[in-house]
Amino acid sequence: MIDKETKKTEVLSAFQFRHATKDFDPDKKISAADFDYILETGRLSPSSYGFEPWKFVVVQNKELRSKLAEYATGARRQLQSASHFMIILTRLPKDMVAGSDYIKRMLDDVQKLPHEIAQAKRENYDHFLKTSIAIEDDPRVMFEWACRQTYIALGNMLTAAALIGIDSCPIEGFNRAKINELLAAEGIMDPEHFGISVMAAFGYRLHAPSDKTRRCAQEVIEWVE
């Protein structure tokens, strides 16, 4: 068994290795097993109440990648060269309210909670949305709240990739409305239930990155005791 210090070193090394890769080597492809592992770390990621407001769409079709590039200026280089390209979708507010069919299915069929416990959890969740964080009356805030949860899954996938020497790049440089329209027109996304959250590219770097720079720990960490 790997000792704790070795694991810590491996994880920190992965963070040092990871950088936002702009140009991937188009001749190097991620194996199916390795990408399945990356996807699994996303699937197993935590979410508020365990309601998983995400869907991971892996776009390998070259024609569709070209169409995406028209409305995703921040992803054009990666769309051309990345081994794997992912679009993360987020559930719309209508699915994320406590009384939705989606939440009912999550409680009953996925989490498999007894009726009484499921009902109590639904009521608690309803109070959370309406009173604790008070966002249910603002669809835009509701959607952005769900999007923030997808970034937990994204972060886990980026780290998981780095741990096995795979490069990545999270991407927000796209026209959300146009990409939503395109995905709906292509039959990839149901616009009644989903909207785009973020994109990510995965592959193997073509060029060595610059040295990583970060503010020192004293600037970003404060202890309150």
Rank of each mutant, 00 (worst) to 15 (best):
T213S: 11
Y49N: 03
E52Q: 08
I221T: 12
D138H: 07
H115V: 15
N61M: 08
S100H: 12
P93W: 01
S132H: 13
H127P: 00
S132L: 13
R205L: 12
D109N: 08
H127S: 09
H193A: 07
L64S: 13
V58A: 07
D109G: 13
P114A: 10
S210M: 15
E10Q: 08
I30S: 09
D126M: 02
G187E: 00
A146S: 10
I188P: 03
F35V: 02
T41E: 10
E225I: 14
A200D: 00
A82S: 15
K104P: 06
Y102M: 07
Q149F: 00
Q78F: 07
K55F: 08
A201G: 14
D190V: 08
S13C: 00
A160M: 06
E136L: 10
H127I: 01
G173M: 12
A69K: 01
V198D: 05
G173L: 14
Y125V: 05
C169K: 02
G155Q: 04
D211N: 14
P93V: 13
I38S: 05
R148A: 07
F174Q: 11
Y204T: 05
H84A: 09
A75H: 07
L113V: 04
K104A: 08
S197F: 01
E219Q: 09
S81A: 05
P170C: 06
L107Q: 03
M86V: 14
H115K: 15
A33T: 15
M189V: 01
P139N: 15
S13R: 02
R43S: 04
A75V: 08
G99C: 11
K7H: 04
G187T: 03
M157E: 01
I117W: 03
K62P: 06
S100W: 05
L163R: 10
N175M: 10
G187P: 01
S31E: 08
Q111H: 15
R122N: 06
M189D: 00
T131R: 11
R43E: 03
K178V: 04
Y102V: 07
R105E: 12
M157D: 08
I179C: 05
S83V: 09
Q119Y: 09
T6W: 05
I171P: 14
F15I: 04
E144D: 13
A208K: 11
Y49L: 02
V57C: 14
L39K: 13
D34V: 07
K62R: 09
I87R: 04
A32K: 12
F17P: 07
P46A: 10
W54G: 09
P114S: 01
R65K: 15
M96H: 01
E225N: 11
I188E: 06
S45A: 15
I103S: 10
E172A: 15
E181D: 14
H84R: 09
F24H: 10
I196R: 02
A14N: 02
L64W: 12
V97L: 11
R122S: 01
E219A: 09
L79A: 01
P114F: 00
R215M: 07
R43Y: 07
F128V: 08
G74R: 05
R176I: 14
R205G: 02
D126N: 12
V198I: 15
